[in-house]
Amino acid sequence: MAIGNLANRFGIPVLIPGGRFNARMLRDHFKRQQSAEHEVTVNALRYISRNTTLPPRARIEAQLQMAAMPNYTKIMSTKNRCTLSGRGRAVFRAFRLNRFTFRQLARAGKLSGVIRAMW
C-alpha cells in the first residue's frame, strides 16, 4: 500500500500525492501540507499583529515572527494545478483539471454530469 510514501523537502518529510505526479505537483503538495500545518499559528500571529488594542511591542513581535516563517507555510504560495497532468494554467477549479485533460476525460465519458453541448 502507498501509505507512508514520503519524500523529503528541506529536511521535512512530505506525503507524496497518489497516482502520477511530477516535481511541480510535489512542490505544491508540500506547500499545501505545510500551510495546513501552520494555519492556526499564522491565524494567531495575524490576530495579534492586527489587534490595535494590544501593546505595540507584542504586535511588532508577532509581525516579525510571521515574516520569519518560511514561504512554504503561506497558503498564498500554493497554486491550483491539474491533479492529473500537473499543468498550472487553465485549471478548472471545480474539476481540478486542466482544460485539455478535462476535454479528454469528458469526451471519454469519464466525468459524471458533463455532456457535450447540443442545441
Binding site: 502507498a2 501509505i3 497518489g18 503538495h29 491565524n43 490595535t52
Partner: peptide, 26 residues
C-alpha cells in the same frame, strides 16, 4: 476598533486545501 477578531472567526481551510491532490492512501 480593529481587534483582529475576523482572523480568529475565519473557518480553517487547511484540511480542504491540503487534500487537493489525489490521496495516496487509496
Amino acid at each position: 476598533i480593529r481587534t483582529g477578531a475576523k482572523y480568529l472567526k475565519r473557518k480553517l481551510k487547511g484540511h480542504v486545501t491540503g487534500s487537493y491532490y489525489t490521496p495516496n492512501s487509496f
